[in-house]
Amino acid sequence: MKHCSILLLLLALLVCGVQAQTPEVFREKGYTLNFVNQDPTFDPAVKARLIKTFFEVYPVLVDQYNKASIKEVTFFVDTTYKAVAEAGGGRVRFSPGWFRAHPGDIDVVTHEVMHIVQSYPHRAGPGWLTEGIADYVRYAYGVDNRGAGWSLPAYAASQHYTNAYRITARFLLWLEKYVKPGLVKTLDDAMRTKTYTDGIWSKQTGKSLDDLWQTYAAQAAKS
């Protein structure tokens, strides 16, 4: 009887494990989202918002930046993952711990699915620009950055365009507004087609990257 009980317990654990790995499939607007959740305590409201944000944002980013992007994406809530989120190979991995602590940070989705849209080849260009574009997109297309308490930081003299993420995103926003509208899309395309060079900045704007940063820094310091 004891052996039977152990076997039944192992079988139950195996079934639960299989069920936990079986994705829920959602389809909308010609796109498919597979949702795999390893955390039985994951907030259903957060899950619903992750799914909703995907279908609100991803098709728009595909249309605006890369129409050849994949149409099927997987979201994976991974209990072993301790950072925030990461994207690669058509999958976004999320930390359940992050969302327990920051349930309103729903535009993590916007940043990460932009990485799927980017799909830059190896050594396409600088990593700081990859992350800067993704945060620029989060700023421009995010569904609830305010609710997450997320914003682009004020300029500080210690900053540099290579700091990536929000610092680079704020620089890109300034470039779009005051120097060259459409520059972010041009940079994104150059990275994806592996045609990015340091000379792209002067070709597109008439100034080198360092000169652009100096002008940005001088104006931002006055505001």
Rank of each mutant, 00 (worst) to 15 (best):
A134E: 00
L129S: 03
R100D: 01
R91G: 06
R166A: 13
Y178H: 14
T41H: 13
C16R: 08
W98R: 04
A156N: 02
A154M: 14
G89H: 06
Y196Q: 02
T215F: 06
V77D: 01
D210C: 03
A157M: 04
A157C: 00
K82R: 12
G90I: 07
Y141L: 12
Y31H: 08
H102F: 12
N163S: 15
K2I: 08
D63W: 03
K2F: 13
R100Q: 12
L50Y: 06
T74A: 14
E72D: 09
V36P: 02
L209C: 10
G142V: 04
K47A: 15
I167K: 04
T110E: 11
D135N: 12
K203W: 07
F26D: 00
K82N: 08
T193E: 04
Y178C: 06
F54I: 12
E72S: 15
G199R: 09
P44L: 01
Y139Q: 12
A12L: 11
A148F: 05
L33T: 09
N37D: 15
L183M: 11
P44C: 05
D105A: 14
M191E: 11
D211A: 15
D211G: 01
A190D: 03
F55C: 03
P96H: 14
K71C: 05
Q21S: 09
N37A: 04
A124E: 00
D105C: 14
H115E: 09
A156I: 02
T32S: 06
G104P: 06
E131L: 03
S69K: 02
T22P: 00
K2C: 02
F76M: 13
I51V: 14
Y31W: 08
H115G: 06
K222E: 14
V18F: 13
K2R: 10
T32Y: 01
V84G: 00
Y139C: 10
L9P: 00
G142K: 03
D107I: 02
E72K: 14
K82M: 13
R170I: 02
A218D: 13
D135Y: 08
Y139F: 15
A169C: 11
P103E: 10
R91S: 02
C16L: 15
K67I: 08
D211S: 15
D39F: 10
R49E: 08
R100Y: 12
A101Y: 03
A83L: 14
G127A: 12
T205Q: 01
A134C: 11
L152T: 04
G30L: 05
D189P: 01
A154G: 15
L173S: 06
P96N: 11
